[in-house]
């Protein structure tokens, strides 16, 4: 495995019944980058993410995460690898019976031997860092708005200072200002915490604003490049995506015409 890569996927095949989602897919994620993953609805972005973090067993192919094969780990090794990444699921997936603060404290309780007051402080620290007001600490997920749930989910993903965070459509369902804030937040946290970010998104503005490279899922494979490289690609879907009206609007608003 290339030392500059935190994730390497080789020849991945995923299939549900007769429905082949990925067919010989290759992907490298570099250390410290923000990688945007795009593709039409149902092309298998969420499945790719779930496969990398080991929630979905691939039919074939090799997946190395942080130098280890995420598929064949057991017991201690698996636990140690687990805590080196954090995941923000498409719909938050906060534990509905716990308060926001407890949601964040869960993984610290599970994986460290920190005393109670330190856990409490660190959980609140995370809540503040993702821009939630502190009175949200003692609220239950059902009492939060969609945007707040996303932030709380992000705080939980960051609870153990992971090296990689996986975000599944972090800005979907947020208002444009909220989405832009969230973009800045992710970029900011990524810089200060030195994260690698794997971000599935449909949001062209986020893509142009914060990603270093973009991976496009087309024809059951992945094409990777910067925005400018991908705009030159002559695949029809990619052309439509980046040079369609919304794509151009997003470029223009970020001064990259």
């Amino acid at each position: 495995m290339d030392p500059g890569n935190v994730i390497e996927v080789r020849g991945l095949v995923n299939q549900f019944g007769t429905n082949r989602i990925h067919d010989g897919l290759d992907l490298d994620v570099h250390k410290g980058e923000v990688l945007g993953v795009v593709g039409g609805s149902g092309t298998g972005k969420s499945v790719l993410l779930r496969t990398i973090i080991g929630l979905n067993r691939a039919r074939d192919g090799e997946i190395m995460v942080l130098g280890q094969d995420s598929r064949n780990l057991k017991g201690r090794e698996a636990r140690r690898l687990l805590r080196r990444w954090g995941v923000l699921f498409q719909d938050g997936a906060l534990f509905s019976s716990l308060t926001v603060e407890q949601n964040i404290a869960v993984s610290m309780r599970e994986h460290t031997r920190l005393p109670g007051h330190a856990i409490n402080r660190l959980a609140r620290l995370k809540i503040d860092m993702v821009g939630l007001p502190l009175h949200a600490c003692s609220k239950y997920p059902s009492e939060l708005s969609g945007g707040m749930r996303k932030r709380a989910g992000l705080a939980r993903a960051l609870a153990l200072d992971p090296e990689i965070v996986f975000l599944d459509e972090p800005t979907a369902g947020l208002d444009p200002i909220g989405a832009a804030d969230f973009d800045i937040l992710i970029r900011d946290l990524q810089r200060s915490l030195g994260l690698t970010v794997f971000m599935v998104t449909h949001d062209l503005d986020s893509l142009v604003a914060i990603t270093d490279r973009i991976a496009v899922l087309v024809d059951r494979k992945i094409k990777v490049g910067t925005v400018d490289e991908l705009r030159m690609d002559d695949h029809p879907w990619i052309q439509d995506y980046f040079n369609g009206p919304r794509g151009r609007a997003a470029m223009a608003s970020h001064g990259r015409d």
Binding site: R121, R124, L125, I127, L134, D188, L193, G194
Partner: peptide
């Protein structure tokens, strides 16, 4: 430098959580 950046960020949050009344 990069650690300093992180420290400043954390300090800001840490100050806020201390003064906020629970």
């Amino acid at each position: 430098d990069s650690h300093r950046l992180l420290l400043d960020r954390v300090r800001k949050s840490a100050d806020r959580i201390e003064i906020t009344e629970v």
